[in-house]
Design a protein around this nucleic acid. Structure first.
Lengths: 115, 115
DNA sequence: TAACTATATAACTATTTACTTATATATGCA
DNA sequence: TGCATATATAAGTAAATAGTTATATAGTTA
């Protein structure tokens, strides 16, 4: 863990821009507690798979999330080792819980199919 | 001061989108401690006056800043009564201080001309 | 190996964004 | 009143964004 470094305000703005999208912000809140795979996001957001992948890429390019392949699935989780984790944590913490979206999936049985 | 209300994640994303711009984010950090007028922002950011006004409008539309006319000048300050103030405060607090930009103005004498 | 599932990427398009220039509005002062 | 200064708004434009469809890549299984 590095000591507190000086943050560049331009880079901070770029991070906030990545967070400034409802889909990506909800993704981050969802994976705050547990990992999710791409197909779950597709179900939750009712969006096309490429669109979901592109959002995840922006989050990954910003180093905000971790990607881990397990067999044919790729799971995403919050990158707690990110230089930006302390910056975004108070934001994510203040967001309303989104777990009901996952519970919804379990009701549908959609969560089981891929995880 | 209202009791903690449930925040909508979509509205939160919109607020973050407003913050997700270097100019606007720096503006917020600058007025965290003291008010600034439009002509100061024009000097600081070396941007056209309409461009500055348009950024300020976005911040005002999001209810993040207060506007107060004093004679021919309009001064802007952080809106501490905003519903979103508790949300953005931890963000702004983490940003590097920008006061050197105002000190720069004072050196130029540009700060005196309008304030 | 071939067929299937999950995910990523490429190319394209419609919308949004941040700026520009031109103009309108508001205030101060001679 | 008329002119100057400060700010806001309108209209136009280039670039960025979020989605689309089509295709590529990677792993799984028969």
């Amino acid at each position: 863990m590095p000591t507190k470094t000086v943050m560049d305000i331009g880079k901070s703005a770029k991070i906030l821009k990545v967070l400034g999208d409802k889909t990506r912000l909800t993704m981050l809140k969802l994976i705050e507690e547990q990992t999710c795979c791409v197909c779950e996001f597709v179900e939750i957001f009712q969006m096309s798979q490429p669109s979901i992948s592109q959002h995840l890429r922006k989050l990954r390019d910003a180093d905000l999330i971790n990607e881990e392949r397990k067999g044919q699935w790729v799971f995403y989780s919050l990158n707690q080792d990110s230089e930006w984790y302390p910056f975004i944590l108070p934001i994510i913490d203040q967001l309303p819980n989104q777990q009901e979206k996952l519970i919804e999936l379990e009701k549908n049985g959609t969560r089981i199919t891929c995880c």
